[in-house]
Amino acid sequence: MLSNIRTIWEILRHSFRRPETIQYPEQKPYLAPRFRGRIILSRDPDGEERCVACYLCAAACPVDCIALQATEDGYGRRYPAFFRINFSRCILCGFCEEACPTLAIQLTPDYEMCEYDRQNLVYEKEDLLISGPGKYPDYNFYRVAGLAIAGKDKGEAENESEPVDTHTLLP
């Protein structure tokens, strides 16, 4: 009984507290840089697509709302032929960002993406791709990967030695 009265008293005291509510459209809340909002695909510092279409984001996605298809340019560089996120299914959990080995897929502090038609929530690669590196300005996957691509031959990545000359028997 006493605890009930105490509860009532505590609740009554809340009459004199400030409301926590932020008056959203007029007043914008502060969003941390790591806020998990709209998903984008970033580019590496050289301006090329970072995504190598490894399918890990799709595998990590708990609602299976990412579909893509890998393809290759003529020099061995992988990129997605199409990359589709169905935001009407997306729960903005950020697993895709965690799974991404090339820091390509990133969640941004933007959540104002409502549509009257659900179909408009299907984002293709053109809608997702931004022109900068996003949160990570320096990383370039192909600088550390062993694969040769246009402009980076074998042995030219970070911490790689010259390709082996198989014709020599010298140690």
């Binding site: 399918y55 595998a59 609602v63 299976d64 990412i66 579909a67 589709r84 009407s88 299914r89 929530l121």
Partner: peptide, 16 residues
Amino acid sequence: HRYTGRTAMHADIDVS
């Protein structure tokens, strides 16, 4: 069990 893209692979045609 790890099949991906179920809700997105046909979404360009119809979101349902």
